[in-house]
Design a protein around this nucleic acid. Structure first.
Lengths: 210, 210
DNA sequence: TAATTTAATGACTTCTGAGTCATTAACTGC
DNA sequence: GCAGTTAATGACTCAGAAGTCATTAAATTA
């Protein structure tokens, strides 16, 4: 039969975010299928049964973990674009900078790698992520690029495609940190990396030289 | 008991590469853990038992699938660097171009996404991939960048980090194709994407304007 | 054509891990 | 302090997938 010996504490409020945080960390590390619910529970300091008090299934937990991190950051970017007044290249660099500091240096940094790895297995979650994060994020960069072209600060270029080229190195930096980085004895300094990228963009995009 | 009704054909020679090809496609699509051996066997047109005639375990099959694609391409890049004589920026662009055409447009295109997703679960395979593909590939780009700096074609820059910035958009293009691309109704044209990237590099890296 | 070898099969075994639920004990109100 | 409520537990069930092997038939040899 059963001998539930140690119900430690009861904290209904704090649980959900503790559980999604533990789940996110392990999903990012091992992938969805290779992560055991027992491990998530252990990491959160609860038992497996507790997970089912707050989430209907492993997949529901996955969705919640993804959604946790993405709510505030895009909105912040939208306000940056709305308020900006100086050179377009500075707007573009601020957006990249903001993405890095608000995602890249937080526990949510692993989400892009997780989405890339699991998109096929969770088309519904991928679609949600695409609509609410990627589409809106691309719109931000697109606005900055359009602005630069319209004001003759940037050379004319196919904006929709350029968006992807501009964001790719930042995404790749994130993804790398959560995948192959362990194999390298010495990893690039993110600061230097971003500086190189933005300086290439300055010289590469702009009509006049800096 | 057993009624093995339909042993179709016997082709000892052709099997291994057929099996790794089927495995690679499914691993790329669904990830290692979420791929069933029955599915791999079905895709290759054999039964599960046949897999074990050629590979000791699912993990052995994984390793073989990864190794299949990477043997020839790096060597080809090394010969390009050795033979090149013109401007360094052209060497750099040829290397990126070659990588795209020799990997990006083949069934092996999914390997980077697969490695990124599974690196943590297979540290040994990741290490192998790092030593034999990434390290050598980075050396190629590093040589092109060093050459440009030494000949005063490129501005001085921290080469080791710049390598990663240069390759990131190409890698990201590949990874995207095998993950989120299904969510977008319209994906960027790879040709346009690479053109933008190389033109940013030309203007961004070089001392004199083109 | 018959005997021998071996590629291939798929039912079976085994094990792992998702999801359940009867039991327990930490809180809450009286 | 006591009764009622509910957060938490962990042993259990069960489905699904990795890996096995006795059986079969295609190919090869005599």
């Amino acid at each position: 039969m059963n001998r539930p010996s140690a119900p430690r504490k009861r904290r209904k409020e704090a649980r959900p975010s503790e559980l999604t945080a533990a789940a996110l960390a392990l999903f990012v590390e091992k992938g969805f299928a290779a992560t055991r619910l027992d491990d998530i529970a252990a990491r959160a300091g609860v038992s497996k049964g507790t997970l089912y008090l707050y989430f209907d299934s492993k997949e529901a937990l996955f969705k919640a973990a993804i959604q946790e991190g993405i709510i505030p950051v895009v909105a912040e970017g939208e306000s940056i674009v709305a308020r900006h007044e100086g050179a377009s290249i500075d707007l573009l660099c601020r957006l990249l900078e903001n993405y890095w500091s608000r995602i890249g240096e937080t526990p949510f940094a692993g989400i892009p790698k997780l989405m890339v790895a699991e998109a096929h297995n969770f088309p519904e979650v991928a679609q949600f992520y695409y609509e609410n994060v990627i589409r809106r994020g691309r719109a931000l960069l697109g606005a900055a690029l359009e602005r630069g072209v319209a004001r003759n600060e940037f050379r004319p270029l196919p904006v929709e495609t350029a968006i992807d080229v501009v964001i790719a190195p930042v995404l790749m930096l994130l993804i790398w940190r959560f995948s192959m980085a362990r194999c390298q004895d010495e990893n690039a300094d993110p600061r230097t990396y971003l500086d190189i990228h933005t300086s290439l963009l300055r010289r590469g995009l702009m009509v006049t030289q800096v």
